[in-house]
Amino acid sequence: MRMLNQEEEVDAEVTWEDQQRINSFSKLNAKYSDLETTYESKKQEKGFLDDLTEELELADEDELIKYKIGEAFINISVEQAQQRIEKDKEILIQELEQLQHEMNDLNGQMSQLKVHLYGKFGKAINLEKD
C-alpha cells in the first residue's frame, strides 16, 4: 500500500452510480477469482486423467482394473476403463470450455467498468490484481 502523490490525487466526487459500479466490479472480480480456481482444479484433474490414460496403455488387456465410482470400486476391463476415462475427459473438456467462456465474459464486463472508473478517478483507484 502506498500514499498518492499530489499529482495523482483526483478531486472527484463518488456518486451513487460510481459506488454501484465499484461494487459491481468487486462482485465480478470475486466471481472471476472463484471461476479461475475451479478452472485450475479441473485442468489439473484432466492432467491426471491424461496420465492415467498413458498408464492404462501399458496394462495387460486381460487384466481387471479397479475403477472408482462414487465411494465404491468395481472391477472392469482395461478397455472399459479407457472408455470411461475418455468419456470423463470429454466432460471435463466441455466444463473447461464453459468456464473459459464465463471467465472471458466476466473479463469483458470488468474491462468496461475499468474504462469508466479509471476515466473518472485515474490513479486514485486501483482495480488491478496484486
Results as ranks from 00 to 15, higher is better:
Asp18Gln: 01
Glu45Gln: 13
Glu17Ser: 04
Asp18His: 02
Ala12Leu: 06
Ala12Met: 08
Phe25Ser: 03
Thr15Gly: 03
Ile22Ala: 03
Glu45Thr: 05
Arg21Ala: 14
Asn29Met: 10
Lys27Gly: 13
Glu45Ser: 11
Lys27Asp: 12
Asn29Ile: 03
Asp11Tyr: 10
Glu7Asp: 14
Lys27Pro: 05
Gln44Val: 10
Lys31Val: 15
Gly47Asp: 02
Glu54Arg: 00
Glu40Pro: 05
Tyr39Trp: 01
Ala12Ser: 04
Glu8Asp: 03
Leu49Val: 00
Tyr32Ser: 05
Lys42Ile: 13
Glu36Val: 10
Glu13His: 07
Gln44Arg: 10
Gln44Ala: 15
Val10Ala: 09
Gln20Ala: 06
Glu8Val: 02
Leu4Gly: 04
Ala30Asp: 11
Asp11Gly: 12
Phe25Arg: 01
Glu9Ile: 12
Asn23Phe: 12
Ser24Asp: 10
Ile22Phe: 02
Glu45Asn: 09
Lys43Ser: 15
Thr37Gln: 15
Arg21Ile: 06
Ala30Leu: 15
Glu36Ala: 07
Thr15Ser: 04
Glu9Ser: 12
Lys43Cys: 13
Ala12Thr: 04
Glu45Trp: 09
Trp16Pro: 02
Thr15Ala: 01
Asp11Thr: 12
Leu4Gln: 04
Asn23Pro: 00
Leu35Asn: 05
Lys42Trp: 05
Arg21His: 10
Glu40Met: 10
Glu36Asn: 13
Leu35His: 00
Glu45Pro: 00
Ser41Thr: 13
Ser33Ala: 14
Val14Pro: 08
Leu35Gly: 02
Gln6Gly: 00
Asn29Cys: 08
Thr38Leu: 12
Thr37Tyr: 02
Asn29Asp: 10
Glu54Leu: 10
Asp34Arg: 11
Lys43Asp: 14
Lys46Pro: 09
Asn5Thr: 15
Gly47Glu: 01
Arg21Met: 13
Gln19Glu: 11
Phe48Cys: 01
Gly47Trp: 00
Lys31Ile: 14
Leu28Cys: 03
Asp50His: 00
Gly47Thr: 02
